[in-house]
Design a protein around this nucleic acid. Structure first.
Lengths: 154, 154
DNA sequence: TTCGCATTTGCGAATATTTCGCAAAAACGC
DNA sequence: GCGTTTTTGCGAAATATTCGCAAATGCGAA
């Protein structure tokens, strides 16, 4: 189900210059599994807050300290493994293994994934303007999702 | 210097269906002034955290409670006046009077503004994919800014 | 493998941050 | 102006985040 198995997770960490520890692998796998299959009408939560990460890991039987989660997401973000998004009033983290993109509704907070395929080369012109390289850039669209717009228009 | 004077701020609040109070006008003006002129080689900070907003207002002689700032940014964000971005480890807020766009460096946290003009119609095709309307959508690019990429490549 | 060094973890505690309830104050429509 | 509704400040509680340090772990070299 997950796009990332234990083996890949390990390699990813090594390549990213991050020491491989049980805790870090766990965080990585959890975030990977959050991506899961995408068959739901409304995508499930792909981004998790530090607290959610900790809670879910503990619920899954892992033994990890909250402080470690904080340190881990910080390290991961610096290594470019994660991507932080402001959702409602919390910072949530999503896997950034492959550049991918999001649309975040400013009203309901829902995060919709946009695959690079869907985006095609519509991104390149936009990046040109910024000087960022498309290799490691991600785009987040903030706005009203279609359903919230309907509600608010009423 | 600011793109927003007292008069405009008031009108903006009214149109947004937000009650006009001294505190809210102050927050709005502060964020507007954060935009300032854009002549610096490195853009100054255009997005502020709740704490920064409070500190700067107090430093400027205003009398406002931290709790009010929290409530205000929440209200503003809902009204579509602000836009939240995850920067480093904090949520920061920037004015969203006119849709505008950002590039956030995941390494140094710097936020670069992209004007709608610069973007031209490069945005529309991207929004098509999401179903979001271009009227109220903003784009944030996350990645390595050119200078951080150089540093990290070394 | 085993050893040694550098990094990471957990823990406990110190700090920050954010939310809440409530009474007083301020805004808005009439 | 007047009454109603919303917002504010305050104090306190609930959460969240960071820190220091000793023990544990990972990783490269021998």
């Amino acid at each position: 189900m997950a796009m990332l198995d234990e083996r890949r997770a390990r390699e990813l960490l090594r390549r990213s210059g991050v020491r491989r520890t049980a805790q870090r692998v766990a965080v990585l796998l959890l975030l990977a599994s959050a991506y899961g299959a995408e068959e739901e009408p409304r995508p499930q939560q792909t981004h998790l807050s530090s607290r959610q990460i900790h809670d879910q890991l503990v619920a899954g039987g892992a033994d990890i300290d909250p402080a470690t989660v904080y340190r881990t997401v910080t390290a991961f973000e610096h290594a470019g493994l994660l991507h932080a998004t402001a959702t409602n009033r919390a910072i949530t983290y999503g896997l950034a293994v492959t550049p991918h993109h999001h649309a975040v509704c400013t009203h309901c907070g829902e995060v919709t994934e946009i695959s690079p395929d869907e985006l095609g080369d519509r991104l390149a012109p936009l990046l040109e303007v910024t000087g960022y390289s498309s290799a490691d850039a991600e785009v987040t669209v903030h706005g009203l999702c279609p359903s919230c717009r309907q509600i608010l228009d009423a």
